[in-house]
């Protein structure tokens, strides 16, 4: 279950060591924008040492590497891959070629380290007009791609429009990514909400993203994590209904009935699939 993803600056020991207690389902150790060019080496070594030393087993670990048009990305992967991050996030992904380039390089490292093939997944960050146009091809480019992620700050600059709280300027891109990801059967993550002090704003923005079909949302602030988790979790009513659906299915199976109804409504396959998802989320959130 990955509802929330929290960015942690890659060169800050105190934040890195407590990254897993801030409530986020995934933590993104950032070697890119949060690290100045002069400190790329120190952040890379620091993140590698922390991954080597700690399990971070209560959440998923993603490392955002530098983009393929820099001199840093292969060095980033050389240090990080041997210590089994769950996912790598390549930024500024423009095309399926960008994805394959990174994937192949990871593949050679996996082989060299005796790791299971394709054990490190990819979550390409799409934050250019070209990337949005190629969203489906990016999402379906490679077996490693488990999700795609929209980055609206760079994107709005590329689109030459102002980034607003309402987000009208990124609505098309959001919807485009959701459709692309669902067509490619991968997850899809929404851009961070950048006003750290606007509690109501993050709630609205997260609910809107959920309504559009996103799997979850990233954040640059620990303060936004609870609101994101809440927006992307099933409600108590959802959970109750899901259990009713499953009970009705079981009951029908016992009685040998083919057609099942609940509260006078037919339960068809999509309803059952949805109920299963909800119960899975319930287990992940509250324990078995």
């Amino acid at each position: 279950m990955r509802r929330s993803m929290l960015f942690i600056p890659g060169n800050s020991p105190s934040l890195l060591m407590n990254a897993d207690v801030l409530g986020a389902d995934s933590i993104i150790f950032d070697l890119e924008d949060a690290v100045s060019p002069a400190e790329k080496d120190s952040a890379r070594i620091l993140v590698r040492n922390l991954l080597r030393r700690f399990d971070y087993d209560s959440c998923e670990v993603i490392v955002r590497i530098n983009s393929v048009d820099t001199e840093f990305w292969t060095k980033d992967l050389d240090e990080i891959i041997p210590f089994h991050p769950d996912m790598i996030m390549p930024p500024k992904t423009n095309s399926e070629d960008d994805v394959r380039l990174v994937s192949q390089y990871i593949g050679t490292l996996e082989e060299k380290c005796g790791m299971k093939k394709n054990s490190v997944k990819l979550i390409p960050l799409i934050e250019t007009a070209m990337g949005v146009e190629n969203a489906y091809r990016i999402a379906s480019a490679d077996e490693r791609v488990a999700a795609i992620f929209l980055g609206a700050e760079d994107l709005s600059a590329d689109l030459r429009c102002k980034r607003t709280k309402e987000g009208t300027e990124i609505l098309y891109s959001r919807q485009r990514l959701v459709v692309a990801a669902r067509a490619a059967c991968v997850d899809v993550y929404d851009t961070p909400f950048t006003d750290v002090n606007d509690d109501e704003g993050i709630r609205k923005d997260a609910s809107f993203a959920k309504a559009l079909g996103f799997t979850g949302k990233a954040s640059i602030s620990p303060r936004h994590i609870d609101a994101i988790n809440e927006a992307f979790s099933p409600t108590q009513a959802d959970i109750k209904y899901a259990h009713e659906v499953m009970n009705a299915i079981e009951q029908a199976a016992l009685e040998g009935k083919g057609v099942v109804a609940l509260r006078g409504k037919m339960i068809d396959a999509p309803v059952v699939a949805r109920a299963r998802q909800v119960i899975e989320m319930e287990k992940a959130i509250y324990g078995a």
């Binding site: 934040l15 407590n18 207690v21 801030l22 409530g23 620990p222 303060r223 609870d226």
Partner: peptide, 9 residues
């Protein structure tokens, strides 16, 4: 401090 806030919560 995010850790402080988490503990407070």
């Amino acid at each position: 401090d995010p850790v402080g806030l988490r503990m407070a919560e």
